[in-house]
Design a binder for these strands. Structure first.
Lengths: 333, 333
DNA sequence: AGAATGTCTGGGAGCGTTCACAGACTGAAG
DNA sequence: CTTCAGTCTGTGAACGCTCCCAGACATTCT
């Protein structure tokens, strides 16, 4: 690779000093129009590109943030929600010329690496995804005082780590109400893990509507994977063969539940109505297509990024953002 | 954030000079056991973490590579293959303590940004994903002489950009042979875009087996999206209502084809056999589950990363890697 | 006129590393 | 005892940038 032009070369080409070039680069005031034009021309002529390392060295800013995916490796990206999140975050960050480093935090070694990376000052901020309650990394990051936000609250750290999320509880209520209105009498639910906000709050919303009808017999827990949806549904069928509806806390798990129901010879929605949550791409590719709760995940990602950038820009604290959900009726319920 | 310890602090704590600490850090020879121990201790005591910016400034190496996703924004991550790729790459790179920056290259602005980023020396290498023939970015990167590899050949640049890929052509042959053996007579195909290797070679393999039976009437093109699978299937049904099998070049598109067939009242596999390609997570969540060709995508990603790291480490050139595929029989054919 | 204020520019210092070099010390070979 | 090769260590000079300060100059106010 040929030697790249430095700020010196630009300064020489423009007939000004480094200082002036730097001022132009950083959009400072106090640069005469003539100098400004000369520098701009010199920049394009020389093909100059600022060296972020050198800049970071003095500014202590890197122009990049890291997205941390806190799931066991094989689960990461199983749910299409991950794709939406990452794609949206990259786009929003790109607008500000901030780049996104993606790291996995599925085991202790990973978490150690992430921490070293962040403590090393290699990222201006951290975007936590699918962080479970009791995550040691989240605590360590808070202690490091690095700007950090999460997609969805971190259970137990709601006040320490700002977040954007869908209104999980109200969303679950919407689905529960709908199932009741449809005349379903024995409504079960498959929740997410109880150390995630989606797990907890979607169950709460469900219970809000069902009241004491939400008996433990009709509640099963999954771990967001399709397979867990399958097995939770199987347990449910065994324990409550007379159920006529099930609210599954994610579309992916709902796809699993659907498979189990089919294998058991139950027709959907005739025998059993199935309600999902997310309105992810899966919802339209199952058979039958899922009636589900749409959460505006792209918008959640955008808001999360916005919060993070505000923190990076020096805001002392930012308020969590909760976005509304909507019921999407298809064929499964 | 409290001031982070520098190499000076470590040197002082260990009672040696910067140079010695640097030698320990970089695993150099010529450090006495005593000095080595003292430095190691000082490092843990002070909680020292090397500043990569300062290091990069002098070494001209960044310890990070960038993965470039060359699809329109809304298509990126629609296919679960992306997840497998990115997750595997991150893991493999992490073993070498290399971090992964993910960038989108869906439009010209994006490509410009990627190019600036790479030319700016912010990444040691580039991992291209889903790059189409005629991609200007790929050419520009080759010209920049930055280490670059691709997942799947870049059509037209097979020799300029090393890659790892599944044996698309042979995989397609396997499926075509299987459908023939099953007694199917009028076998159609839905290909990927003809400017991608998967699009071209899976059609070639199909044609290898079907010979002149692979008439243009029985060939339709999709763009890898589920929706394109739906519409391609619809066009096929209109043009060749008597078809009794269809080989779809990706599971995601096959899911779309399945939906169209169902809507048209064709039973799968009774009336029409459907063969997919990828054996992605979708294959088991469709109804019926897809008979498909497994491509070892995680392994492809691993090999691609390996090639990239070799180039980054200074290898002049590396040989492309082609990995075998296998037929996976489920219910759709 | 002189002072005060504001605009613009150049250049030294420093960010935290690695690298090359010079020099000190050791032990073995002549 | 000298020479030489090998081992080990410290230090100055980069790497490419931003920040800060001093100073030049122009304009306005008293």
């Amino acid at each position: 690779m040929a030697k790249r032009p430095t700020i010196h070369d630009v300064a020489a080409a423009a007939g000004v000093s480094r200082g002036t070039v730097s001022r132009v680069l950083n959009d400072d005031r106090y640069v005469s129009p003539a100098a400004h034009a000369a520098v701009r021309r010199a920049i394009t002529e020389t093909g100059y590109i600022v060296n972020r390392n050198a800049r970071s060295l003095v500014t202590q800013r890197t122009g990049s943030v890291v997205m941390v995916l806190s799931e066991p490796h094989e689960k990461v990206f199983e749910d299409p929600n991950y794709g939406v999140l990452i794609r949206t975050a990259i786009r929003r960050l790109a607008e500000r010329d901030v780049s996104l480093v993606v790291m996995l935090a599925g085991d202790d070694g990973d978490r150690e690496r992430v921490l070293r990376y962040v403590r090393g000052g290699h990222a201006d901020g951290v975007f936590l995804v699918s962080t479970h309650a009791g995550d040691t990394l989240a605590d360590a990051l808070v202690k490091t005082r690095v700007p950090a936000v999460a997609q969805g609250a971190v259970v137990g750290r709601e006040n320490a780590i700002p977040y954007a999320a869908a209104d999980d509880r109200e969303g679950a209520r919407q689905m529960a109400r709908y199932l009741v209105e449809q005349g379903r009498r024995r409504i079960a639910t498959i929740t997410g893990p109880m150390d995630t906000p989606g797990g907890v709050q979607r169950l709460e919303g469900f219970a809000d509507v069902l009241g004491r009808k939400a008996s433990r017999r009709l509640i099963e827990h999954g771990d967001w994977t399709q397979l867990s949806g399958e097995s939770a549904m199987a347990r449910l069928l065994e324990r409550a063969p007379d159920l006529d509806a099930v609210f599954v806390a994610s579309d992916l798990m709902a796809a699993g539940a659907l498979a189990t129901l089919r294998a058991a010879g139950r027709r959907v929605p005739d025998d059993v109505a199935v309600g999902g949550f997310d309105d992810s791409s899966i919802a339209v590719s199952t058979h039958p297509p899922l009636t589900t709760i749409r959460q505006p995940l792209a918008q959640v990602a955008e808001e999360t990024v916005r919060l993070l950038l505000e923190l990076v820009d020096g805001a002392d604290r930012v308020e969590p953002v909760i976005l509304p959900t909507t019921l999407v009726v298809r064929d499964s319920a």
